[in-house]
């Protein structure tokens, strides 16, 4: 049996949600707040006030692959990432933190925040292992939901950003 491609089907599959169709900043703040209380400490709060990130920043992120595909990226100053790592390690924190300690702790925060974000998105989706380094580039500015917070007065951003370029705009 043959079928005629009218373009209707193709246009149908081209409908891809952007993150702002699926969640808002309040959801990200709630998810991050719960992660902070659990991992960092009961009295640790994230204040939703923007701040200027320093020049030396570090990012940690996990990728979500599914009906929506992208990354959940935390970015903060390197010194703040180290302070976060110490807060997670508490009494087991070494006197001098190794790079691996910061990658482990800061990555784990991204893992927990990303896992909760993934659970709030349509599934089924896969979740990657956390990565730490330079944040992945924003591919489509319309597919980003971003919050800016202060932790202990230091700025930190959480960006839920699509990994795919924008869909082409039909010519007619």
């Amino acid at each position: 049996m043959t079928s005629t491609d009218t373009g209707q089907r193709r246009r149908g599959t081209d409908v891809r949600p952007v993150i702002t169709d699926l969640m808002d900043e309040d959801t990200i703040l709630a998810v991050a707040g719960d992660a902070w209380i659990s991992l960092v400490g009961e009295d640790e709060v994230l204040v939703p006030i923007p701040g200027d990130l320093p020049g030396d920043v570090l990012s940690s992120w996990v990728d979500v692959v599914g009906p929506w595909t992208g990354s959940v990226v935390l970015t903060t100053g390197r010194a703040t990432a180290e302070a976060l790592s110490r807060a997670l390690l508490r009494e087991t924190a070494p006197e001098v933190l190794e790079v691996e300690d910061v990658e482990d702790a800061f990555g784990e925060i991204a893992n927990v925040v990303g896992g909760s974000i993934k659970a709030a998105l349509p599934g089924p989706s896969g979740l990657s292992l956390p990565q730490v380094g330079h944040a992945p580039l924003v591919r489509n500015p319309a597919d980003v939901c971003r919050v800016e917070v202060l932790w202990r007065g230091e700025p930190l951003t959480i960006s839920v950003q699509g990994a795919l370029p924008p869909l082409p705009v039909p010519s007619s």
Binding site: L39, S85, L88, L89, R90, T92, D101, D104, A105, G107, E108, N111, L129
Partner: peptide
């Protein structure tokens, strides 16, 4: 696989 999570 996270040492810090094992500690937590």
């Amino acid at each position: 696989d996270s040492r810090v999570m094992r500690q937590i």
